[in-house]
């Protein structure tokens, strides 16, 4: 008799395990693509994945990376990614250009974009930029620099560059657009001291426009609203965890970089993590973590209107940002 009872208990347990597995299999699948190669800029996503925050939220998240050839927005448009991160300006422009994407979270609240020049080029104030060569990425991120130059009536010779700082280091250009969290530190890590550089932070000149945000297609938002909300919350949790566990986070990021066969070192990733965490923090802006401030949205839209020369862009905050 006893034997029969044990068999029954065993069968019950087996059934229970199977049902649990089925439950897990039913968790919502999401594909996320950051808008650049693995680096500390996206630490929160790796942490949320590694720490199981997504899984705990009932999500099965997969991170795929964009490349110089295929941007995260391309992946979004093609349906290869459900959620992507992107620059606010780029996303608005895409939306204006009829790509039905929406912002589901504004992670960065500040601008990390800046111009950097070598002091030896004789540049110490914006007026000194007149007539100099400016290196700007061919991939974009140029709205604010152009607004800055236009507002100050500064003419510069624009040189499109790919993604290295070597032309600047070789004195091929006098000035370069860089991200404070990335290329600026790369320049310093190439042997140029900070005191040898003149830095113009656009944020200091009134262009503190948020950058990285999370986007999905409107259709996705409609069907996976709940999963997306969970994704945003788990991501914010990931960032919170990253801020409190810098060493772990940097190690995780470096491991991701190694997986992608990218040059990696901790010094730069620590710098990037610290700077990106500063960007995420609202600071003097009256906005909650992950929220897009209406004023920022309108300012960004204004700049785009002026840059593109299209004045009657009809895009509202409510259409664009899904709280």
């Amino acid at each position: 008799m006893k034997h029969v009872i044990f068999v029954r208990i065993f069968i019950c347990c087996l059934l229970l395990m199977l049902s649990l597995q089925t439950l897990q299999a039913q968790s919502e699948k999401l594909v996320f693509s950051p808008h650049w190669i693995p680096q500390a800029q996206f630490a929160g996503f790796y942490v949320a994945l590694d720490q199981g925050f997504y899984r705990d939220a009932g999500l099965d998240v997969q991170i795929i990376h964009s490349s110089a050839d295929v941007s995260s927005l391309d992946l979004l448009k093609s349906g290869k990614a459900d959620v992507v991160s992107s620059f606010l300006m780029d996303a608005i422009k895409l939306r204006v250009n009829q790509t039905p994407l929406v912002n589901i979270a504004q992670l960065s609240q500040h601008s990390a974009l800046m111009l950097v020049a070598k002091k030896k080029s004789g540049i110490s104030k914006p007026e000194d930029l007149q007539g100099k060569k400016l290196g700007i990425w061919s991939s974009g991120f140029d709205d604010i620099p152009f607004a800055f130059l236009r507002d100050r009536k500064i003419n510069m010779e624009i040189v499109r560059i790919l993604n290295t700082v070597n032309l600047f280091l070789m004195d091929g250009v006098d000035v370069m657009t860089v991200m404070n969290y990335n290329e600026y530190d790369q320049i310093i890590n190439s042997g140029i001291n900070e005191e040898e550089l003149t830095a113009f932070y656009f944020a200091d000149y009134g262009y503190d426009i948020p950058e990285d945000g999370l986007y999905c297609l409107e259709s996705t938002y409609k069907t996976k609203k709940d999963a997306l909300r969970k994704f945003v919350q788990a991501t914010l949790k990931g960032w919170e965890y990253a801020a409190k566990n810098r060493d772990y986070t940097v190690n995780l990021v470096v491991a991701e970089m190694k997986k992608a066969h990218l040059p990696n070192n901790k010094a730069h990733q620590y710098w990037m993590l610290d700077k990106v965490l500063e960007l995420i923090t609202p600071g003097n802006k009256k906005v909650a973590y992950g929220q897009l401030m209406r004023a920022d949205f309108l300012y960004a839209l204004d700049i785009i209107k002026i840059n593109s020369g299209i004045k009657d862009i009809k895009l509202t905050m409510e259409d664009f940002f899904m709280d």
Binding site: S138, V159, R160, I161, L162, T164, N166, L167, M170, D171, G172, V173
Partner: peptide, 15 residues
Amino acid sequence: YNYFIMDWYQIPAML
């Protein structure tokens, strides 16, 4: 592959 903005091309071309 826009080689004009590659370091190997752009830097010697400009310098």
